[in-house]
Design a protein around this nucleic acid. Sequence first.
DNA 1: TGAATTTGCTTTCCAAGTCAACTAAATTCA
DNA 2: TGAATTTAGTTGACTTGGAAAGCAAATTCA
Lengths: 140, 140
Amino acid sequence: MTTELNPLGNHLSYALAAAHRAVTQLLTVRLKKQGIQIEAWRIMECLDAGTKLSMGELAKQALLNPPALSKLVDRMVSNGLVHRQIATADQRQINLLLTNLGRRRMLQVRQDVEEEDRALAEQFDTKDGALLMQLLSQIS
Amino acid sequence: MTTELNPLGNHLSYALAAAHRAVTQLLTVRLKKQGIQIEAWRIMECLDAGTKLSMGELAKQALLNPPALSKLVDRMVSNGLVHRQIATADQRQINLLLTNLGRRRMLQVRQDVEEEDRALAEQFDTKDGALLMQLLSQIS
DNA sequence: TGAATTTGCTTTCCAAGTCAACTAAATTCA
DNA sequence: TGAATTTAGTTGACTTGGAAAGCAAATTCA
């Protein structure tokens, strides 16, 4: 017998939202102590990976809509974490680059994120973390 | 060999955010045609379930912070979907009630959400949808 | 009892996000 | 070529969300 208190409990989309909210809240609190936003960290990780990314590509990878990315990048520029560079091939495109400060900050923040991710993975039996990840990445 | 293009791909928290974003976007588009917000639908489902809920309980179930709930409820009241009722036992508490219009609108929206949820479940092999849900609800 | 504290919800102020319009560069094709 | 279209990114007006303060009812306990 299933005693379902919350009428939303049957919806996969709700379970996803609830899990996302829980994880995001924890991570947000932790990164706030570093004075940084989750999305800003994502951007910095993407930039650190090497391949030059346009704003459009970056928006997809960092899970932001273009206007939100533009504005967040404005803030990051004024905090000295990144700077814009006009792409040579296509003058409309922007290549975003990490500053030295940005790289240092990213490495600090990465510690926190990985610790949080480890704590999250510990909520699962051995193989289940990987399984969850695999299932999640099947979506859309 | 794993060719990982996106440096964030190893993080469970990122996989969760990406999946959540994809699902939310689809659902948002669909509900926007009905002129309603996902959170408003959640609230209405909770209210329809019978047990009288305080704003605090509702906030938890609908995955909203109290101020966000207060404001959304303001809008829903002015759209005639719900109304506030001061609880008799504790005069500080609010019991939110669905109006008839609210109930009708909820039933319409429910169709859409369930259709969307069905489409989502179809992205998985038979048992995997339930498995994913089970894993997600283990979180926090 | 009644002062002090806690609890439930809302409000205020500000930061951040969305949609749609805009600018400018690149591409298409007549 | 050059006018028309498409693409990349940003901006502006508006809406929404969050943190912290505020208000009022309930509870605690001296």
